[in-house]
Amino acid sequence: MEREAAAETAAVQGADPHPTHHPMKLTLHVWRQKTRTAPGEMVTYPLDGISPEQSFLEMLDHLNETLIRRGEEPVAFDHDCREGICGSCALMINGLAHGPERGTASCQLHMRSFRDGDHVYVEPWRAAAFPVVKDLATDRSAFDRIIAAGGFVGVNTGGAPDGNALPIAKVDQDRAMDAAACIGCGACVAACPNASAMLFVAAKVSHLAQLPQGQPERRERAQAMVGQHDREGFGHCTNINECQAACPKEISVEHIAQLNRDYVTSTVSAVVKG
């Protein structure tokens, strides 16, 4: 019985469980810029022998290996975990932040999403607050400064009450976790026509606002983070929602609504106090 069923599935799926893939040929157009201040340009590189099994970054590795062997400088790009969690990788691929797949960071994108003969355009994030450092690498330290301005719970190490002292409803916990999943990549900014970082700010504000631990500083936090956001030169949010579509963690724009509520009440109370 079991054997028959098994044989049947095999017939449907064909005998080879792991079909071999034919290597692809692509034409890459890559932004090259030597330093922050140097002018940049798109440079074309024909690239051969790409396996559909390769990740997008492995394809760039392949390009870099070819360049180094020719004695040319490799293309600089940020990367580290290559698992979609550290937020290092940050590529505009054919005009889309992190490329064509939904909920996918550049490092998780595989070459099977492309076809033999394709032209692929690779550029850095474009935003005044994210200056290009070199080639595809940008300076996203503005995000660190936004967190430093207030994206935390202000407790020192030591003296914390027992972890179970404060029960937290599972739904609140889940909502906090949804927001906390942000990897700080900056795709939301790159995708936004206004280069606003509101989704990033909202994700952190909302994560902490869902939890009792986040309450004491809730209003100040929203205000401080939005203030820093504006000082860094990010644009305003006009509800275009491109950020959500580009976000590799599919952070919802609903968090921006939550942020707006916290922000408005915080400015109102500031005015009243002041």
Partner: peptide
Amino acid sequence: DIIDQCVAQGVPFAREYGGL
């Protein structure tokens, strides 16, 4: 102590329905 510290920082550890 680590768990207590992380909870105080707002680390969203998984919870049961009763909130623990």
